[in-house]
Design a protein around this nucleic acid. Structure first.
Lengths: 193, 193
DNA sequence: TCCTTTCCTTACCATACGTTAAGCGGTTTC
DNA sequence: GAAACCGCTTAACGTATGGTAAGGAAAGGA
């Protein structure tokens, strides 16, 4: 049940089996079917989730109901709408499953408790936020200075795993362009090779 | 020397004068002249800085030497290149002063110490990172789904203080457009009113 | 199995933004 | 006080991306 999480923890820091086991007692498992919501705008986001298996996406809806994809997650990633989770205010964003998924969830109280009780978990979870933040800055850097084509190439290099399993029109939204533009870019890249 | 910082701390959480004083002993003051670098790409970023007074910017250079502005900071903001600071690797980004500035700096060891010694400071600094992360996601949301004109309007609403004192061509870079495009957008908005 | 929906692509035209070039008031420099 | 620079704007034109529409392959539902 905790295989992927154990691997991810190991990749970040040293943690004994006992410390790991202790931490996992604060986690709530949950299965999500494809298309099922973990969070719908209007609800308060009550969980930070680790993806043991499957694929989620975080997105908002613009004034005309079109999806703006803010991020993806697959096994080995953490995900939440921090805005709503921390403030305990209704979310403006949505999280749903792109594939049948298995999650490990942690709520605000458990988060406090595990951070206080197991310093290693505190470090681990803080490190997760740091990495997310750095990734966000890198993505902003791309938007500020790179063309859609460059952003697509960067995405391929950074997340080859995601590219394999996420529909192209969702990747287009993530890149801030239309599916048609992405299609055009891919054609252009293919002929150039 | 710590007026702005004291105000900022107060705005985030409750902290006694003694706790505050204790924390400030870990800070190193520094003055920076306009155009002076705090960090140049190639150096390791050794500080997280609080801006008591003045204005800084964080930016990278593209292949042709053009500046891509990743962020601004004025009094009451914290700033660093987290990528370089945490990994202790040479930075790819630069930080310099847009105005004569007064900074309070904290290095990696002091950061560890103050976090361990004063729990309130640990919470405070963690909150700062959280806010930065949330702001980054909001900015990404803008890039994914909003036009340049909308991004400009959002910038005005979010950071009216910044708009007053930062040259327009730098704001243009922050928004991911050219100064000419920003000028066009401003004209369009002015005539529409 | 059929029928619907989803996903990807292509084509055509519209538009937002980039590029290049130039001008002009304000400030700094010598 | 020129001269040089800087910040901002405007204009003309080029290009990347958006919008609309349509078709076809693949997947999913009944």
């Amino acid at each position: 049940m905790f295989e992927t999480l154990r691997k991810h923890v190991n990749s970040q820091l040293e943690m004994s089996d006992e410390e790991f086991r202790l931490g996992t007692t604060f986690l709530t498992p949950k299965k999500l079917r494809k298309r099922q919501y973990l969070l719908q705008s209007g609800e308060v986001c009550k969980w930070i989730v680790f993806i043991e298996k499957g694929c989620l996406r975080l997105y908002s809806l613009d004034d005309f109901g079109a999806e703006r994809i803010l991020g993806f997650g697959i096994e080995g990633w953490w995900m939440t709408d921090l805005e709503s989770f921390q403030a305990k205010k209704p979310a403006t964003r949505n999280i749903d499953a792109l594939e049948d998924s298995e999650l490990l969830m942690i709520g605000p109280e458990s988060l406090e408790k595990v951070s206080a009780a197991v310093p290693k978990w505190d470090h681990y979870l803080r490190g997760v936020l740091d990495k997310e933040y750095k990734a966000a800055i890198t993505r902003i850097s791309d938007f500020v200075g790179a063309s859609a084509e460059e952003r697509y190439i960067h995405f391929l290099n950074l997340y080859p795993d995601l590219f394999q399993r996420i529909p192209l029109h969702q990747i287009a939204s993530y890149l801030g362009i239309t599916p048609q533009s992405l299609s055009r870019i891919r054609k252009e890249l293919a002929t150039r090779k």
